[in-house]
């Protein structure tokens, strides 16, 4: 399935003859092409390498851009609101008078959803990973893994819809007093969202544990459960922890599902039955309105975005460290 190349360059440019190199050409994929093309070829070589490098370096520029943009507006914000008031204030009402800029309610809402999602997704994900890696036959794996991939590929706005119109009515049937928009339903759908991630990352970690360790356990007469919980899981622990942290970081950064399902009421509460607001949902809420550029309201979304960025980045770096340690042990 090799595509036929269009041949435009001369097969043996005179430059190479002048340089004392015998001009010859080879047939590659049925096309004549020059093997030694002299200065022009070398220029092209350097150009290709340089273009590729610039593209790779663009990612560094993206990071720099994110940090620059977020910092610029956040500094502007902190010139008007003291960082102490921002990080310790217990009320978030930036668009009303008198404005209050305490980020704690948004942080609290974010963590309420992330912890709730984790309570569901981490144990279920780990158990399903153990099933897939230790118990399942290749045929079952062949059916279940693509389904997990489909679950992972469903857009978050669809999870939001599912939360509002399926999970919440279900919850209200059992607990009639909970709000229409509530943290619990947000946490459940975010939990469903991160479940495939936990499951597949944990499975990678478990499968990387050498067979010999398992066989040692079986040789001593252990049951499969004993081998799984006392040998394989402890051996893969840093990989499992890394997957947990990555999943929680994904839950914290999740936007549309919580915007739809968890509400838009910044509130310092640990009650999952109440309507709350997460950091991401606040950014979307402000973006939907007409907040003038340069106003304090416009700057708040960058300050909140900066907080979100720092938290998720710290978690991702921690997870990467754990994975590296895990790899060092077994490779």
């Amino acid at each position: 399935m090799l595509p036929r190349q269009k041949e435009t360059e001369p097969s043996a440019p005179p430059a190479s003859v002048a340089q004392g190199v015998l001009p010859f050409s080879v047939r590659v994929n049925g096309t004549r092409r020059s093997a030694v093309s002299g200065a022009m070829g070398r220029g092209r070589e350097a150009l290709a390498r340089w273009v590729c490098f610039v593209c790779a370096f663009l990612s560094v520029a993206t990071t720099a851009g994110i940090i620059f943009v977020l910092s610029e507006e956040t500094i502007g914000f902190f010139q008007q609101v003291s960082p102490i008031a921002f990080f310790t204030g217990t009320e978030w009402a930036p668009l009303f008078a008198p404005a209050r800029f305490g980020v704690l309610p948004l942080l609290c809402g974010t963590f309420l959803v992330a912890v709730g999602a984790g309570l569901f997704a981490l144990p279920v994900g780990l158990l399903s990973a153990i099933y897939l890696s230790e118990y399942a036959s290749p045929r079952v794996r062949g059916i279940v893994k693509p389904m997990l991939e489909i679950l992972a590929g469903i857009p978050t706005v669809v999870y939001g819809y599912f939360g509002v119109f399926f999970v919440t009515p279900l919850l209200r049937r059992f607990f009639p007093n909970i709000d229409v928009f509530n943290a619990a339903s947000g946490a459940i759908v975010v939990g469903i969202m991160i479940l495939p991630l936990v499951s597949s990352l944990c499975e990678d970690a478990l499968s990387a544990v050498p067979r010999a360790l398992r066989e040692g356990g079986y040789g001593l007469g252990s049951t499969k459960m004993e081998v799984s919980t006392k040998i394989v899981v402890p051996a893969a622990l840093s990989g499992i922890m890394a997957s947990f942290i990555l999943a929680l970081s994904r839950a914290i950064g999740e936007t549309m599902a919580v915007t739809l399902a968890a509400g838009a009421t910044p509130k310092l509460t640990l009650n999952p039955a109440e309507s709350i607001q997460t950091m991401t949902a606040y950014i979307v809420q402000v973006s939907l309105g007409d907040t003038p550029v340069g106003s304090l309201g416009y700057q708040t979304i960058f300050a909140v975005g900066m907080t979100l960025f720092v938290i998720t980045l710290a978690m991702n770096i921690l997870a990467a460290r754990l994975v590296k340690r895990f790899r060092n042990v077994y490779q």
Partner: peptide, 12 residues
Amino acid sequence: NLAGVPSVVYAL
């Protein structure tokens, strides 16, 4: 690390 940055941060 960029792969783990929340989409809403790219939006900003």
